[in-house]
Amino acid sequence: MIGNLDLSFFNWELVSNFLAKGFYFSIQLTLIAMAGGIVFGTALALCRLSGRPWLALPAATYVNTMRSIPLVMVILWFFLLIPLLIGRSMGAELSAIITFTLFEAAYYSEIMRAGIQSVARGQVYAGYALGLTYGQTMRLIVLPQAFRNMLPVLLTQTIILFQDTSLVYAIGAYDLLKGFEVAGKNFNRPVEAYLLAAVVYFVICFSLSSVVKKLQTRIAIIR
């Protein structure tokens, strides 16, 4: 007991019955949206830097549109529109995974674009001069360097992504936050449950940020 707060319900049963499932989904959503977002985002960045308007323009429009809409609205609209388009619901979880991947790609794309531009033009010349094609030069020379230069920023974006996954409450998907909410209702302790939720999110994000900071200094030394 701390004041009027009763934290006694926080035990292993709570974790295994309510939180594990939600935590698992939050992590899954974060990892898939990160991987998919970086791949799709890199493709968008390459389109924008291609110098060909028919590739650059649609990519730029996509990125700028996504970046101008609140995420929660994208989540909601995708969830509501898909049943109208395909005739049935795809489920909140799958809908969230697709939405996050598409949305995060816009942000990862801006990071990768800066990363690609951070690689000296001479590196591209050197790749071409050896007989590498455009694709090979990008894949083997430019993107690995861009990725390495941007790793801390990419990871920071991923931490933000992890925090944002809690927005899937809007469509009722069962994530970590939802786990706390349901547990709070179940034990009739909603305030304590949300308090614990805040602590858990804080601890996860704070430790990840510290890891990124360490990484940043190590990368600075390698370069």
């Binding site: 000296a120 010349y125 001069a129 390495r148």
Partner: peptide
């Protein structure tokens, strides 16, 4: 081709 700034691949 050899460049002024070497352009070895640093990674």
């Amino acid at each position: 081709m050899v460049f002024q700034h070497f352009e070895l691949f640093p990674h």
